[in-house]
Design a protein around this nucleic acid. Structure first.
Length: 413
RNA sequence: GGAGGGAUCGCAUAGUGGCCUAGUGCAGCGGUUUACUAAACCGCCGUGUCGCAAGAUACCGUGGGUUCAAAUCCCACUCCCUCCGCCA
């Protein structure tokens, strides 16, 4: 949420930044509602003063009169306030000044590349062919049991995921992140506070309406809201968490896209990082989280590039976002494996999350980033480490966790 | 799933219709005293809104209701605790 005062004082900035995110807003409409609210609030307050005075004087006659009028005006005021609030929620976060204005992902900038794509002396296979042959990925049976866009991991596929988990644990614990295993169902009201339900965002979520619960799309949802309605101490910042959890996505609107394999599925496990920082440290923290994501891919020795999103490709709450795209030989292309965003104080305003700075309470700045979104790094490993016979060499850094150096086509006895 | 108890300004508590504009203790902050620490004493000490300010107003888990007047009475919901049942 953006502060109404800020919007009043920076109308053209807010108007333009929404437009740059391809989102229509009507600020004059919001200002009219606020004017009406102010007028009504004043009137109601004066009536309350009268009512309280008469009550004190035990003037039942007059009191009854004023109370009657108040009884009609108070609900109207409440309705106006709710309308204003819900209109304010529809305004997306403002992109950071350094973010390029652009329409869609075609205008994103590649900032840098790490290592050149591997050149094989044989035709590269994709992860699905490799995974099925090795009996570590099973999509067919997942479709039978759960439907399209689900998958089983089996055998060394499972060990591979757990090895990635171990690697992330080792790196992130050393950096001082607090490990978390969170709930994966979230109250729908809390989910609204995170700012992903606007702009039809809720259509990409699995909802359990009978219980007013929603399945999380990422652990960010439950990590960030951990500090809802709390005031942290400035000396405790930055506060950093990471969580290992399933993530659920309906992938509405992506029909026909990435239908093959396990690149885009309804459920996958993910390790997500979240930082709470002061306003001054927002930019530094963004670079820091990005550096961790890069380090993780470098440890796996997988070629990647860093892409900076333009305004049109930013999410609703994001002010700046980088994607890390790993080279995937099976697709002969770079594909997104992780991303990292700052949402500045956008979620904190909605969720009422502050920190104490001397005499002041200020809104926390919040950042989130992926450590591993298991399916995609596994795809990258399979495709980059494939051998001509279809076996997979396990990245050095994972070998100690897997207890082996290679995933063989046929397990030798 | 059944029965009962509860939710008050960081924490702990008081408050059963108007004296609550919410008391007290602890913690915290500032000061006096002190060689230092502690103690004692004095002051400050929730949030939003309107207002230059004085002040006003709203908030006692959430949402409704009764009343001239609600922390207090009524209804619904949420969460917590105890017991029974079931269960990884």
């Amino acid at each position: 949420m953006i502060d109404i005062k800020f919007i009043r004082e920076n109308k053209s900035i807010v108007q333009k930044s929404s437009k740059n995110k391809n989102i229509e807003i009507d600020l004059d409409h919001i200002f009219r509602i606020e004017d009406r609210k102010k007028e009504f609030a004043l009137e109601v307050q004066q009536l309350r003063e009268e009512r309280n005075r008469y009550a004190k004087e035990r003037n039942i006659e007059k009191g009854k009169e004023v109370s009657n009028i108040l009884g009609k005006k108070e609900p109207v005021l409440r309705a106006i306030e709710e309308e204003l609030y819900s209109e304010l929620l529809k305004i997306p976060n403002i992109p950071a000044p350094d973010v390029k204005v652009g329409k869609d992902d075609n205008e994103n900038d590649v900032l840098r590349k790490w290592k050149e794509p591997i050149v094989f002396s044989f035709p590269a296979k994709d992860h699905l062919i490799l995974g099925e042959a090795l009996d570590i990925i099973d999509v067919k049976r997942a479709v039978k049991v759960s439907g399209a866009r689900f998958n089983y991991f089996k055998n060394d596929g499972v060990l591979l995921e757990y090895a990635l988990l171990q690697l992330a644990l080792e790196v992130l614990l050393k950096e001082g992140f607090v490990p978390v295993i969170p709930p994966v169902l979230i109250k729908t009201d809390v989910m609204k506070g995170l700012g992903y339900m606007e702009n039809d965002g809720d259509k990409d979520m699995f909802h359990i309406p009978n219980d007013n619960l929603t399945l999380i799309g990422t652990a960010e949802h439950v990590l960030v809201s951990m500090h809802k309605d709390e005031v942290l101490e400035k000396k405790d910042l930055p506060r950093r968490y990471f969580a290992y959890s399933p993530a659920f996505r309906r992938e509405a609107g992506s029909y026909g896209k990435d239908t093959k394999g396990i690149f885009r599925v309804h459920q996958f496990n993910k390790i997500e990082m979240v930082s709470f920082v002061t306003e001054e440290n927002d930019d530094i923290e963004h670079e820091y989280l990005l550096s961790i994501e890069e380090k993780l891919l470098q440890l796996l020795d997988i070629p990647y590039r860093v892409v900076k999103m333009c305004t049109g490709d930013l999410g609703f709450p994001a002010a700046r976002k980088y994607d890390l795209e790993a080279w995937m030989p099976g697709q002969n292309n770079y594909r997104e494996v992780t991303s990292v965003s700052t949402v500045t104080d956008f979620q904190s305003r909605r969720l009422n999350m502050k920190y104490q700075d001397g005499d002041d309470k200020k809104y926390l700045h919040v950042l989130n980033g992926t450590a591993f979104s298991m399916n995609r790094p596994i795809i990258a490993i399979l495709e980059n480490y494939q051998q001509e016979d279809g076996s997979i060499v396990i990245p050095d850094v994972l070998q100690k966790y897997m207890g082996k150096e290679k995933i063989f086509l046929k397990v030798p006895r």
